[in-house]
């Protein structure tokens, strides 16, 4: 049985994350993790004609880098599980049109990174695929257009606002032995504690993250110090203290090993309000920096919890609150791997 409790998958076979690829825009490559990314662009347009093409370019670059490191071609991949933040997940659809890999579109807002990785691992573990690529992308300007105002609009944003990461990440999952194992995943449920402000995603998403993390600890029957790092996706400076507080109330202290990808991807002096957000936030930090730390042996066991605000501007205008979700995946250093 690979199901623990109600919502946690324990992968019975040895499932590996073989290689990963990342591509980012100018702000991210200028950030503290800039050297960890495979492809960096010095302009927000990523040498393309419009923002949407720029985002697609990033996802294509990430998948290309991932395949290149594994010395594989698109024909060697069974399925592409991909998603992004735009309507009808266009960046993923058009990327899949380009590379011809059989495609399953995934949407979980900014939690898509770990949603696609967990699903990919489950497919491989169940014998439904040999090799899967999980990919996500987000772009600051396409997200602004989709969810907020035109990029050059001079409206003032509050300090609780987040800054969408421009970038893309892709990961190859298979049973072929490598140095990083995917051992378990916890699927989150939709949580909504009544936040209505689209400029305060951290407060909206923190309860979803706490719910998934607590469910994971309970169903895996582990304590927080089992992990060298518990990384949330994009809770930012506002949501990160809230998730720690909510978990402490439930008896889990993660204050020593918790970090938030939204606070790792930018320097504090970069003007990004409360921190980074978007599908690519958790993806580029995990697939770029955290995997590298695991390979080096600095981290042995990490729990990545990607958080997503299932925000829709029309719903918010109709006075609905913002539902949120979080999915977690455990990555471990494979002893005896290469």
């Amino acid at each position: 049985m690979n199901l623990l409790g109600r919502q946690t998958w324990k992968f019975g076979n040895n499932i590996y994350l073989n290689t990963a690829g990342t591509a980012v825009g100018p702000m991210e490559s200028d950030g503290p993790l800039g050297t960890y990314f495979d492809k960096t662009y010095s302009n927000l347009h990523c040498d393309q004609k419009n923002w949407e093409l720029a985002e697609r370019q990033l996802m294509e670059d990430a998948i290309h880098a991932c395949l290149q490191k594994a010395q594989l071609k698109p024909e060697d991949i069974n399925f592409l599980l991909a998603g992004d933040l735009l309507n009808q997940i266009v960046s993923a659809n058009y990327t899949a049109r380009g590379n011809g890999i059989p495609f399953l579109g995934v949407f979980g807002a900014c939690s898509t990174s770990m949603e696609s990785l967990a699903l990919g691992a489950a497919l491989v573990d169940g014998g439904y695929a040999n090799r899967v690529i999980a990919a996500v992308s987000s772009h600051n300007a396409t997200a602004e257009r989709q969810f907020r105002y035109p990029t050059e609009y001079g409206g003032q944003k509050p300090d609780t606002a987040t800054f969408t990461v421009t970038g893309a990440g892709a990961a190859l999952v298979s049973k072929e032995i490598s140095d990083i194992k995917i051992t378990s995943a916890t699927v989150g449920k939709v949580v909504d504690l009544g936040i209505t402000d689209p400029f305060d995603m951290g407060s909206a998403m923190a309860p979803a993250a706490a719910d998934t993390i607590a469910a994971h600890f309970k169903e895996m029957n582990v304590s927080p110090d089992e992990y060298d790092l518990i990384a949330t996706g994009d809770l930012s400076g506002v949501g990160a203290p809230i998730v720690k507080m909510l978990l402490k109330e439930q008896g889990y202290d993660i204050s020593d090993n918790h970090r938030d990808c939204g606070l790792m991807v930018y320097r504090p002096d970069q003007e990004v309000f409360a921190g980074g957000s978007g599908c690519a936030c958790s993806a580029v930090v995990t697939y770029g920096y955290i995997l590298d730390e695991i390979r080096k042996g600095n981290l042995k066991k990490v729990f990545i919890v990607a958080t997503g605000a299932l925000l829709n501007p029309v719903m918010v205008q109709q006075k609905e609150t913002i539902p949120t979700i979080a999915h977690g995946v455990v990555l471990e250093r494979a002893e005896g791997g290469n």
């Binding site: 300090d159 609780t160 909504d192 504690l193 009544g194 407060s203 506002v238 809230i242 609150t321």
Partner: peptide, 22 residues
């Protein structure tokens, strides 16, 4: 789905953490 009371309790709880607009 969280009840109105749960929503209010959460809003109260996070108030001290949220940055105040200057």
């Amino acid at each position: 789905m969280a009840t109105k009371e749960e929503q209010q309790a959460y809003a109260e709880k996070i108030k001290p953490i949220q940055p105040k607009p200057p």
